[in-house]
Design a protein around this nucleic acid. Sequence first.
DNA 1: TCATAACATGAAGACTTATTCAATAAATAT
DNA 2: ATATTTATTGAATAAGTCTTCATGTTATGA
Lengths: 199, 199
Amino acid sequence: MISGVKIPTTRNGKATFNIIVETAIELFYINGYHSTTIGNITSEAGIGAGTFYLYFANKKALYTYILMEFQHDIRKRIATKVNQVEGRFEKEKEGLKTFIKYALENPHSYNIIWESLYIDRELFINYYDTFAKRYEVGLKESVEKEEMYDVDTELVSYILMGVSNFIGLKVLLKLGDNNSNVDQIVDNVMNIIRTGIFK
Amino acid sequence: MISGVKIPTTRNGKATFNIIVETAIELFYINGYHSTTIGNITSEAGIGAGTFYLYFANKKALYTYILMEFQHDIRKRIATKVNQVEGRFEKEKEGLKTFIKYALENPHSYNIIWESLYIDRELFINYYDTFAKRYEVGLKESVEKEEMYDVDTELVSYILMGVSNFIGLKVLLKLGDNNSNVDQIVDNVMNIIRTGIFK
DNA sequence: TCATAACATGAAGACTTATTCAATAAATAT
DNA sequence: ATATTTATTGAATAAGTCTTCATGTTATGA
C-alpha cells in the first residue's frame, strides 16, 4: 500500500505493528520526530531492534503512515459533523469546533501534522493543498446558494484554516487566558468573523 | 549577552562570527535545523571544526541567537510601517503587507520561527505569547478610539496572527493559485476581513 | 618590537544511531 | 504431524556526529 510499509497478515503481526505505531505517536509527540530514535521506539514498545524493519523501511515511512492516518481521521470527522447542520455559518462553526476539539482530544495529531513541514516539505504542501481544495468545494456551494458574498474562495479557505490553526494553537498550548471553554471560544470567534472587527 | 554565545571583539572575530550565522541561516532553511550538523556549518563556512565552539556552546545556542535576531528585526519593521499610517484598518493592512513582504524577502525567518516549536517549545510559546501581547496593545487602543467594536482583543490577535501566517504560508510555498501580486492579495484579504464573508 | 590576548585549526576519542543477518520461534495450512 | 510461511531476536557492523585540546597564527597596544 504505502511505500515502505508492510502490513502484517497474522493476529500477532498486527499486534506488533500496532504497538510500534502507538509507541511512535507517543514518542513523536513528547520528544519530536527528530529526537526519537528507532531504538527508543523498539525498546519502549518492548520489541527487538530488528523487528521494526519487518514493517517499516525506516523512520520516515512510519511517520508518513501515521500522518496519513490522522489526515484521514480528522477529515472524516469534520465532514460528518459539518453535514449534520445547515447553512454556511453553522457549518463553519461546527467545523471549527470539531477541529479544536479533535486537536484537544488528540494533541498528537496536531503536532505531527505541523511537524511535517520540517520532515518532508512535500508532505506538508500536499496536506494543506488538498485540505484547502476540499474546503473550497463547500465554500463555492455556499457562494452559489448566496449564503456568502462572492469572495475569493481560495483566499477564504486559507484565512479560515489560519484562524482554526491559531485558535487551536492557543487552546492547545494554553497561550494567554481563557482556554478552558471551547464552545465559548468558538462562539466568540464566529461572532468576530460574522460581525467583523472594524466599525 | 545570550547564554551560550560569545560575541567577538576584533574585526576578524566578527567576520568569522557572521559567516557562521549566515551559513547556518542558509543551511537551516535548506535542510532544516535537525538535519544540519555543526560539521556542515563549519565546512560550508570554510572554517575549522573547533572554531564554531569559540562563539557558540552548541547548535541550539546558535539557533536561539538567530531566532532572537529575526524576532527583533521583524517586530521593528512592522512597528515602523504601522506607525506611518492612521486608523486601525489601515494599520492592520500595512501590518499584514509588511509581514508577508518580509517573509517573501526573507523566507529563512519564517521557517526558523515556526520550526522553534520542534526545537524548543518554550521558545515558540514565548515568541507567540509576546507577539500577541504587543498586538493587543494596539487593538485595545483602537477599541477605545471606537475604530473597532468591543471585541475580545486576545482572540482577535490570535485570529489575525493566524490569517497572516497562513496567507504568508500560501504565498511562500506557492500553495494554490495567484501568489504573485502581494499587494492585491493583501487588499483582498483585508476586504474579506472588513466586509465579512457571510450574508 | 615585543608581549599578550584573541583567534583558528583539525585530528582524535567518545558517543550515538541505523541497519543487517544468522539463528530461532511461533503460527498456520495441508 | 509435518512443511512452510511468518514473525522475532539482539549482537555486530558501519556510519556519522559532537566536542576537546594541544598546537599554531594573527592582530594590536604599549
